[in-house]
Nucleic acid binder design. Structure first.
Length: 621
DNA sequence: AAAAAAT
């Protein structure tokens, strides 16, 4: 039987009082610490925030600091990754003044910020330290859906995966937050990616957001920053020096990552700030000035901040690109190169770089390798594993019939729904104008809808998302701005009103449902305008054990090879192969290689039974 | 051709 989190917390509250040897003040409202008693550890090291081993509550000092102490002057290195000794300079040295020396620890501004930190978990209850990772607890993630998922890794000396959070020494404070999040055991991507990241290795990972991808790169980053005894950063007027940078392709996704990272870093002293366009910059500047360890950002706003010299990347130790293939495609690549290669960020091999996405076209992998050093490639998933959870339907609908067809779907859905309530339905269209038009039409016809796309103000976008999540407008019409990464609970149905031209986009779109191991439905409207998608779509559906309509198979068999960019560029659909391994020996398996072997890929159902089939797709972000 | 991302 399931025990609620609140119950177990209540039951163990008295034990905690004894068992908890965490020196930090509790986040309870009743605990008032007068100013003169605050920040006692800091008084032992006046300009710094105190030894992090105290703050983090690590069970041992094993490993020690992975990086050279910035104030110590010793040129240590990261033994695990064999990085060269780093001769960091001390930018701004001598410019600071006064008592504490010329350094400013941005993480602690004279008092311990944690005492004022808003509890992102919305309660002030303690967590169960007596029964860490109690298997009876339930995070809401359906772990059974993740059993026996095959994993492919390549690269030198891949650290072995772990099976439990307890096996990883992330630090007690972070462990508490993991329990507060009700994560009982790591998801497959976390099991593999966290040890790799903690080992200081660069990583290219194909993984599913719904199963905790954000945590997979956040935990090691937060833990790594905490493990620093302290970090001394330059003090240059109005410039801040984050230690970690997380980039994502949309503003809403950056916000989401920020929210998650804030939860994970609660009470750790690690400060997370988000910066994105469309919102007043002054507020973001103020947040930055209050100190930042982890900066989550969209590229445009970050470039702005860098050009204003309000942010410097020279202290960056961790770089994470979420939706990395998107970040490196034509639209974004120049900006990313500018940020990573042409500003003041430490070079690859000096910083640690982690790229995450589900889809990783070979061409993008090749590009991405510019940013990586001796990296490990990780692919988590199995033929049809995740998309098994999403029922995919394709219907032949002429352009002129799409609206009435959608109306039929929505009516049927409403009638089958509980109390006649409309289930959350996400409708993807091709254009911003089309989104507005469809939204208007739906509203006119009695279906409360809203829309999200790049022509709306940021306020409108955020309002639309809130209104959808809350069920106030249970239909959200969206462009591809909402296709990737967004974790919207309870999306029952994704409708591809207009299909995308790229199968990877389709994979990301339908992945907005069937999250966290739950089931979902995806319906696509297909017509002659989508011929180039017929082959990859039919393949994908077949590989995911979906029913492929005969008419679609016919279209697919007639469709010219190469109509889809992924066929050419090397597919990145799951099953994701490390492009470094695609030498001549695997030519006959390389369905995406541009060779004629690819024609063998289609219509060979015999391969799909077990294990990997090359070029397999799933809804893994 | 469209979408996203700075003002």
């Amino acid at each position: 039987m399931r025990t609620s989190w609140a119950d177990s917390v209540a039951n163990s509250a008295s034990e905690i009082a004894v068992a908890d040897n965490n020196p930090l003040p509790r986040p309870t409202r009743s605990t008032y610490v007068p100013p003169h008693l605050r920040n006692r550890t800091a008084s032992e090291a006046p300009t710094l925030s105190g030894p992090v081993t105290d703050r983090a509550g690590f069970s041992s000092a094993a490993g020690g600091s992975q990086w050279p102490r910035w104030g110590g002057g010793s040129g240590g290195n990261k033994p695990e990754s064999g990085r060269p000794a780093q001769g960091y300079g001390y930018p701004g040295a001598g410019r600071g003044g006064g008592g504490g020396g010329g350094w400013n620890n941005n993480r602690s501004g004279g008092w311990d910020r944690r005492e004022r930190e808003v509890n992102p978990f919305g309660d002030d209850e303690e967590v169960d330290t007596e029964h860490p990772f109690n298997e009876q607890e339930n995070s809401g993630i359906n772990f059974d859906a993740y059993e026996d998922i095959p994993v492919e890794t390549s690269g030198d000396n891949v650290p072995p995966p772990v099976n439990t959070f307890a096996e990883i020494d992330l630090g007690e404070v972070l462990n508490q937050n993991i329990r507060r999040c009700k994560y009982v055991k790591p998801t497959p991507v976390q099991r593999h990616a966290i040890p790799i990241a903690l080992g200081g290795r660069d990583l290219m990972a194909c993984a599913q957001t719904g199963s905790g991808k954000t945590a997979a790169f956040c935990f090691p980053i937060i833990s790594g920053i905490m493990r620093e005894q302290y970090v001394q950063r330059p003090r240059v007027a109005r410039t801040v020096y984050p230690l970690a940078l997380i980039l994502s392709p949309t503003r809403e996704l950056s916000c989401q990552i920020h929210d998650e990272a804030k939860k994970f870093s609660y009470q750790t002293g690690v400060k997370v700030v988000v910066a994105y366009g469309g919102a007043p910059i002054n507020q973001q500047l103020r947040e930055l000035e209050r100190g930042v360890d982890i900066l989550v950002a969209t590229p445009g706003r970050l470039v702005d901040l860098l050009e204003r010299a309000r942010v410097s990347l020279q202290m960056i130790r961790y770089l994470a690109l979420d939706e990395a293939d998107r970040m490196l495609d034509m639209g974004f690549e120049p900006q990313i190169r500018k940020i990573v290669e042409q500003m003041d960020m430490p070079t690859r091999g000096v910083r640690q770089t982690m790229l995450f996405s589900a889809t990783f076209p070979r061409e993008i992998q090749r590009l991405a390798s510019d940013f990586l050093s001796n990296y490990i490639f990780l692919a988590v998933g199995r033929v049809g594993s995740s998309t098994d959870l999403i029922v995919q339907r394709v219907e032949f609908v002429q352009e002129t019939d799409k609206r009435s067809h959608l109306m039929d779907l929505l009516h049927a859905q409403r009638e089958n729904g509980i109390h006649g309530k409309q289930a959350l339905t996400l409708v993807f269209v091709e254009t911003k104008k089309g989104a507005d038009a469809l939204e208007h039409w739906l509203c006119m016809n009695g279906f409360p809808a809203t829309t999200i796309h790049g022509d709306r103000t940021q306020q409108e976008r955020e309002m639309a998302l809130r209104s959808f999540k809350s069920g106030k407008t249970p239909i959200l019409v969206a462009t591809d701005v909402a296709a990737r990464g967004l974790d919207i609970p309870h999306v029952a149905h994704v409708v591809n009103f207009d299909l995308p031209n790229d199968i990877d986009d389709y994979v990301h779109r339908i992945g907005r449902t069937g999250r966290a191991g739950k089931s979902g439905l995806a319906t696509a409207f297909f017509n002659e305008g989508n011929l180039s998608l017929s082959r990859p779509l039919a393949e994908l559906m077949q590989e995911a054990n979906q029913e492929v309509p005969a008419w679609l198979t016919r279209y697919a068999s007639r469709a010219p090879y190469g109509g889809n960019k992924n066929r050419r560029s090397g597919g990145g659909r799951f099953g994701g192969r490390d492009f470094r391994r695609e030498g001549s020996f695997s030519r006959n398996l390389d369905y995406y290689g541009g060779g004629n072997s690819s024609t063998a890929a289609y219509g060979v159902p015999g391969n799909y039974g077990g294990g990997y089939a090359p070029g397999v797709t799933s809804a893994w972000d």
